[in-house]
């Protein structure tokens, strides 16, 4: 029953999307070849598709609509395609992953909002609409990521941050060549990327230009985060605290005397003017009341 339904839906979707695909051809995604070949380390099955559907409903459905129903948001231009369409299904897993990572025009990127696992699960969900799809698993073995060690080395003279990535295999250390490396600095709401995403050289080294003017805490401490993504070892993240930022200890914004500040920090001129006016008027009033007592006293005496 369920399968039949899907087949009918797919057929309808094919007819509809085929009509649009000609128009949209001009806006094909331009995906670098090395990204195109990337594959998931997660085996796609019903479970991954199901959790992928949850992620899809939260993050993608508002524009792309229900997969297979071609009921995406019609007001957008270009219109977001139905993801069961050939247009989408023709793409490799690596291309879909790239699209999720970068976004374009109205489509936001999800590289910071969804974990890599979740991103793959969404792809798994999308693929569940394609019966012909056969998954190619990546060579990545996530359990091996524990073996990898990232060494950070900062050269203050040149303002360069050098990373060396080594995996401590049982057989001895192995340098990670051609692995994708990103460098971040922790900020209050997220990680600020430093320089560009680069790849390690043949010795497992990667060098980043580090900005001189990045504010640190009061003594200049920065929390540096390095992220390595390797074909075999998967994703590795390492954190360290270095005193290489600009010491920042800005005063509180309410420290100065100002007209808008609290009573204790009112400008002197207001305090003096106000108090003296009130005192002077009060003094005269006291004087007058005293006079009234005097008048009364004189009358009483006589």
């Amino acid at each position: 029953m369920f399968r039949k339904n899907i087949i009918i839906k797919i057929t309808i979707a094919f007819i509809i999307t085929a009509f649009f695909s000609l128009q949209l051809n001009a806006q094909r995604w331009d995906v670098p070849s090395n990204k195109k070949a990337k594959n998931s380390y997660i085996k796609f099955d019903n479970n991954t598709a199901k959790s992928g559907e949850e992620v899809y409903t939260k993050n993608c459905k508002s524009c792309h609509g229900d997969v297979g129903k071609a009921n995406g948001n019609k007001t957008l231009n270009p219109q977001p395609p139905d993801l069961s369409s050939t247009l989408t299904q023709e793409l490799t897993d690596g291309e879909l992953f790239y699209i999720l990572n970068t976004g374009r025009n109205a489509m936001p990127n999800f590289k910071n909002t969804l974990s890599e696992e979740d991103r793959w699960k969404v792809i798994s969900y999308i693929r569940s609409f394609n019966k012909k799809y056969v998954q190619v698993l990546s060579k990545t073995d996530p359990s091996k990521s524990k073996l990898v060690k990232i060494n950070m080395n900062f050269n203050a003279a040149t303002n360069k941050m050098n990373l060396s990535v080594v995996a401590n295999e049982a057989s001895g250390p192995v340098v990670l060549k051609d692995a994708e490396v990103m460098l971040f600095v922790s900020r209050y709401f997220g990680k600020l990327q430093i320089d560009k995403t680069i790849r390690t050289d043949k010795d497992g080294n990667a060098t980043f230009n580090f900005p001189k003017d990045l504010p640190g805490d009061s003594i200049g401490n920065l929390t540096i985060v390095a992220k390595v993504s390797d074909e075999i070892y998967g994703e590795i993240e390492s954190q360290t605290k270095l005193t290489i930022g600009v010491p920042t200890d800005k005063p509180s914004l309410t420290a100065k005397r100002a007209i808008w500040n609290v009573l204790k920090l009112a400008p002197w001129w207001i305090i003096i003017t106000y108090t003296s006016i009130v005192l002077i008027v009060g003094l005269f009033l006291v004087l007058i009341v005293r006079n009234l007592f005097r008048i009364s006293k004189i009358g009483a005496q006589q």
């Binding site: 990127n109 910071n112 209050y188 997220g190 600020l192 990045l214 504010p215 920042t248």
Partner: peptide, 14 residues
């Protein structure tokens, strides 16, 4: 003070 702002949609920090 940190010279950084984070985008609410993409969570990208710049």
């Amino acid at each position: 003070n940190e010279d950084a702002v984070t985008n609410g949609t993409t969570k990208e920090t710049v």
